[in-house]
Design a protein around this nucleic acid. Sequence first.
DNA 1: AGCCTCCCAGGTATTAATCCCCACTTTGAG
DNA 2: CTCAAAGTGGGGATTAATACCTGGGAGGCT
Lengths: 219, 219
Amino acid sequence: MVKSKKKITVAIADDHGLLRTALARLVNTFDDYTVIIEAGNGRELKEKIQQEVIPDIVMLDVNMPEMGGFETAQWLKKNYPQVKILALSMLSDEKTIIKMFRVGAKGYLLKNTDPEELRVALKTLIDKNFYLSDYVSEKLVSGLNFSGGKEEQEIELNEKEREFLRLACSELSYKDIAAKMFLGNRTIDDYRTSLFNRLKVHSRVGLVLYAIKNGIAEI
Amino acid sequence: MVKSKKKITVAIADDHGLLRTALARLVNTFDDYTVIIEAGNGRELKEKIQQEVIPDIVMLDVNMPEMGGFETAQWLKKNYPQVKILALSMLSDEKTIIKMFRVGAKGYLLKNTDPEELRVALKTLIDKNFYLSDYVSEKLVSGLNFSGGKEEQEIELNEKEREFLRLACSELSYKDIAAKMFLGNRTIDDYRTSLFNRLKVHSRVGLVLYAIKNGIAEI
DNA sequence: AGCCTCCCAGGTATTAATCCCCACTTTGAG
DNA sequence: CTCAAAGTGGGGATTAATACCTGGGAGGCT
């Protein structure tokens, strides 16, 4: 007769099959929850939700191929706004976190958090409609504080600048880079200076870190 | 009376708590296996193995802070050669795979493989003492073809060198790094020179790339 | 035409990074 | 005890990285 018989339904979208399944089993061990959908990317999740049933909660990996966390969250928000989105990610940088909340996430869980925290997150999500860990709260606050009023505009890089950044992620000297790009040494100086200002870095290592973090350079 | 009563013991080392626990539960659902050790990094695993009991299989994440997959595998090979190492990673590049096998791994599982594959991998590891998926086999073959004869000997880094590398992956000057490490500027010079020689690089960017590729620095 | 913005470039000065030669201390093996 | 190796450090030289000031040319816009 207890109404707790009706479990809270959960969908999981993550491209790492091993982890997805393992995570699903973990959630299923929680009394009040049951995983009804597993998907390897956003598109798959979308199809399953349309064909099958609407879950109460969607656990959404941010970094997926085909249809990533951002897009998927946007789609969910538009079509099934009642679904509570819990973002999952290994990335802990402010920008990603803020971006996910902007597109509709109600919580953000780092993959290295304590497993017990998952239970807390799910429960809080149901009870209070949102979940913030201390860590994420802090990132949110400092992130908003930082960007303040100014919506930090996306930094647009042209193809030559990207090429320059890629070459900077190597042991070539700037002179070598200039030669490779068929440009004068001074022009490279200007690229560097310009990027220093726009990317808010002040050393070549800063350029390298930016390029890697933002997927401009492969390593 | 069946001797299958004695389960095969498994240790799991992965820095992502959520995934580690989920993975552990998954393994525990397999009849013949039981997870007896969980660790967040190699050092922790090392301590637990020394204090507690030696597992039959160690599932080892390649990219961990503090003491990564390579080192940990080397240590295991040296001290507990009977332990079967199953490497776990999201990286699918040849070099990493080959390196893990060189330091003693008996299998290599990509985190995006099918969960059923884990069961197969564990069983194969026990029965045949090694496990190779088709994908990994192919990488191994083409990779060995590539590296040819030259045995690249392993590079051992002490904690101070690692600390130095981590700090090098920032916009701090060497002078700043020296101050942070409570060492003289010249000592840092020597760390740099020594690492340049051993890591076969010849610029600070080279150090940064090495540190990131080998999981010494987080980004 | 005038104006604005990019892209490109020379000169020079300053600071950081890199290299070389040498010495002192500690530690540990023989 | 002695010797070797490793860790630490000084002084000084060379090269690369970074900063600042300047100006020319191409293309778009009014």
